[in-house]
Computed example of a mutant assay.
Amino acid sequence: MCGRYALTLPHDAMAQAFAAKPANDLPDIPNYNVCPTVQVPVVVAGRRLVSMRWGFLPHWYDTPTDGPLIINARAETIAEKPAFRAAVRERRCLVPATGFYEWTKGSDGARLPWYFHPVEVEMLVFAGIWQDWGADRVPTCAIVSCAAGPTMAEIHHREPVTLDPADWGLWLGEEGTGAAPLMRAAPEGRIARYRVAPTVNSNRATGPELIDPLIED
């Protein structure tokens, strides 16, 4: 799964990486503690870099709090779930990240955060889905998750689906159909991890020190 992530690449660097046209209302970057319900930059078909609310809102929600907060969509059931099945067919997106966080529990029950980051490249790209919600057509998105691969499994049983650059066009629907096989765990060697300080446990925490490796006594 993915419940928090970091994004530090400037807007122009992301636009260049995706060959995308950036919108004028993109959220402030860097953000070392991207939390659910905030605005995040995503790439949609037509190679536009736009801002969306992280927290997918099904069309039957009358208010954003009418049901569970949906930040992830399970790959195994995404095509059947009423909330997601139209979006995964017609409205897929790319969600850039510098890295993401996950937690284990210490012997005393304390939440111990880990930071997962790409190996040899600057950016991870999550598979996402999106849809507009409400009379004002508020764009909202969720990150697709799958069963954890080797790097992630010791920490958590789920992980966000990450995409190679060669697969971006297929996920966006620019290169025909057949994107379902892309919803899989990252191959070994794509992502690495290390412990970080528990400061990030607070959703109000900010600053680059959140992704500094933890030096324990």
Rank of each mutant, 00 (worst) to 15 (best):
Q131G: 10
T65M: 09
V34H: 07
A73L: 14
A6I: 06
I191G: 07
D212M: 08
M1Q: 03
P113K: 01
E76C: 04
G207E: 00
V144M: 07
A180H: 12
G3V: 12
W133F: 06
C141M: 14
G3K: 09
I71A: 10
E90P: 11
H59Q: 14
A13I: 12
S51V: 11
A135S: 15
M152Q: 07
N201W: 03
P139I: 11
L112E: 12
G55E: 02
V44T: 11
A20W: 04
M123Y: 08
T199A: 15
E159Y: 06
P36I: 03
A180D: 14
L210S: 02
D136A: 11
L69Q: 07
G134W: 07
G3N: 03
R91G: 09
T199D: 15
E102T: 12
V125C: 10
L9Q: 07
T104Y: 01
I129T: 04
R91K: 14
A13S: 14
T65K: 07
P96Y: 01
I129L: 14
L112M: 14
A75L: 14
E102W: 07
R158W: 04
L124R: 08
A73W: 12
A179R: 09
Y194R: 00
V119G: 07
Y61A: 05
P82L: 00
R47C: 01
E209P: 11
S107M: 10
V121A: 11
P10N: 02
G109D: 02
L94R: 06
P113R: 02
H59R: 15
M123T: 12
M52G: 00
L163N: 06
A127M: 12
N33V: 06
E120S: 14
L26R: 04
N24G: 15
F84D: 03
S202H: 00
W171N: 09
T77G: 03
N33A: 00
P113G: 02
A83V: 01
G67A: 04
L94T: 08
D12T: 15
G46E: 05
A192F: 10
A142F: 03
V34I: 13
G207A: 01
I129N: 05
T199G: 15
V196I: 08
P96M: 10
A192K: 05
R193F: 05
I29G: 01
N201A: 02
V125K: 01
M183H: 08
Y115P: 11
W114Q: 11
